[in-house]
Write a protein that binds this DNA or RNA. Structure first.
Lengths: 97, 97
DNA sequence: TGAATGAGATATGTAAACGTATCATGATTT
DNA sequence: AAATCATGATACGTTTACATATCTCATTCA
């Protein structure tokens, strides 16, 4: 009964991508974000949902910023982030439940 | 010893703005997001830090989406959201600690 | 006038996000 | 081969985000 929400897994994957792209270890990110390594690991693997404030700190440590954008502009924002059509870069938007 | 982080207050303010703009009551947003009213109230007043997943659900209930964008593109994204220079609309970016 | 509504607030209990400590494993390096 | 180093994983204790229940206080409205 512990489904490990798909959303959390996606978010974790994004963080991992960003971390590797930044050439940082889990421990370094954890330190920068002010949390423990086991904690960061759980977040990155999608096992646990961080607090909003923790996610902000982690994101910032990875060169990302958490933003709340009107749903209608999500496509435009995404387009902004991948100039050359095909992606793989940041920009996280979770799927509805 | 309960400082009520400035970041949380700002986030709460944004949620309140969005809620009022959407013409919803605290209880309606709480229901849509799947949390209790007292809980949503705490989030909106900045007393408590929601979980990342809760923030996603609340945001979605308000017509917003949580996104993680590269820090370098934050200005561009913000510009996208306020076509007419002066703001007051969504787009949340917290201040560093 | 008084009933309903929206919001602030407090109390108690539970689930889960946190910390610290510790061990295992696979890859790299000396 | 031995020693790092990065990561996965588990255990236990603390803090806090959550639910539910209940009370108050304006405001609105029949």
């Amino acid at each position: 009964m512990n489904a490990i929400s798909e959303t959390l897994r996606e978010l974790g994957d994004l963080l991992r991508q960003a971390r590797l792209a930044a050439g940082l270890t889990q421990e370094q990110v954890a330190d920068l974000a002010g949390i423990s390594r086991p904690r960061y690991r759980d977040i990155e693997t999608g096992i646990a949902a961080a607090r909003a404030t923790t996610l902000m700190n982690v994101s910032r440590a990875l060169g990302l910023e958490m933003m709340l954008v009107p749903q209608a502009m999500v496509p435009a924002v995404r387009a902004l982030m991948r100039p050359r059509d095909d992606d793989d870069l940041p920009a996280f938007v979770s799927q509805p439940d």
